[in-house]
């Protein structure tokens, strides 16, 4: 309770600073709009049909990308995590693919996929696959051998051990990976919209408000919305993780 109040006080304090800075004239007029203006724009935007459609486009692309990334990375991670030979083989590929920043592929993706939603979804998938994949492999490695031995001493075979021991004990790590990926995917979706102006979305809205008309108040309002989406997604996933894996000490451990 006290924490909530303090958090709100912090928020109000931040907004007050923003208001003062905005009105102080430190920056040329219109560059750093006061908090009150940004909040007014925010309310207006949320009632604006075109903006809401942009928002939906972004969230939808994000959700599809995350779904695909999970569907690809979790099975791949399980496979690589359980078969050491495969993992050693794949290591080189993974290590050289992962460091390529997803945004470096934007120009290429635009050429190949055009500026439709495919581009942002495929790039977001590319970026979101890695955290899930690594966390899954890591989790399979971290399964306590004592648990496995215990299960085997009760006569469980290879597959039942995998299904009933390895998977449950790996699940919290995988969930953490998914949460990290969710954040990355949102960043990439918005970035691609912003850089490529592709097929609507929050990113393009910010691009047009910024470079087209120089409306920084709209840019800030759009940024707040993007931040809110990211915050809510993360908070929601964290909540789900806590509920599902209350037994695990790994919950909440993330970077």
């Amino acid at each position: 309770m006290r924490r909530t109040v303090r958090g709100l006080v912090g928020l109000v304090g931040f907004l007050a600073v923003g208001e003062v800075v905005g009105r102080s004239g430190i920056a040329p007029p219109g560059y750093l709009p006061p908090s009150s203006v940004v909040l007014t724009r925010l309310v207006e935007l949320l009632a604006d049909r075109a903006f809401v459609l942009d928002l939906i486009a972004t969230v939808l692309a994000w959700a599809i990308a995350l779904g695909i990334a999970v569907a690809v990375a979790v099975p791949a991670g399980l496979l690589l995590g359980t078969v050491p030979a495969l993992r050693h083989g794949a290591k080189a590929v993974v290590e050289f693919l992962r460091p390529i920043p997803s945004v470096a592929l934007i120009p290429l993706a635009i050429m190949v996929f055009g500026i439709g939603p495919d581009t942002k979804i495929s790039l977001a998938v590319y970026a979101a696959v890695w955290p899930i994949l690594f966390n899954t492999i890591y989790a399979m490695d971290e399964v306590d051998p004592k648990l496995v031995d215990t299960a085997r001493s009760f006569g469980l075979g290879r597959w039942p051990v995998l299904a009933r021991v390895s998977l449950p004990s790996a699940a919290p790590f995988v969930a953490t990976g998914i949460r990290l990926s969710a954040a990355v995917a949102l960043i990439v979706v918005v970035s691609v919209e912003f850089l490529a102006g592709a097929s609507g979305g929050l990113g393009r809205f910010i691009l047009e408000s910024g470079s087209g008309s120089g409306r920084m108040d709209l840019v800030f309002a759009g940024t707040v919305v993007a931040g809110l989406v990211g915050y809510l997604v993360n908070a929601g996933l964290e909540w789900a993780q806590r509920r599902l894996f209350a037994w695990s000490a790994a919950v909440g451990e993330a970077s």
């Binding site: 006290r2 958090g7 918005v190 840019v219």
Partner: peptide
């Protein structure tokens, strides 16, 4: 105490996709 005050702001700041503020940095 300090984290109680600024914790939510920090979490929010991290959730902002960084490119969205590029237009602001551009004009500034």
């Amino acid at each position: 105490v300090a984290m109680d005050y600024v914790g939510p702001l920090l979490a929010f700041a991290r959730a902002i996709p960084p490119p969205t503020l590029v237009p602001v940095f551009l004009v500034l």
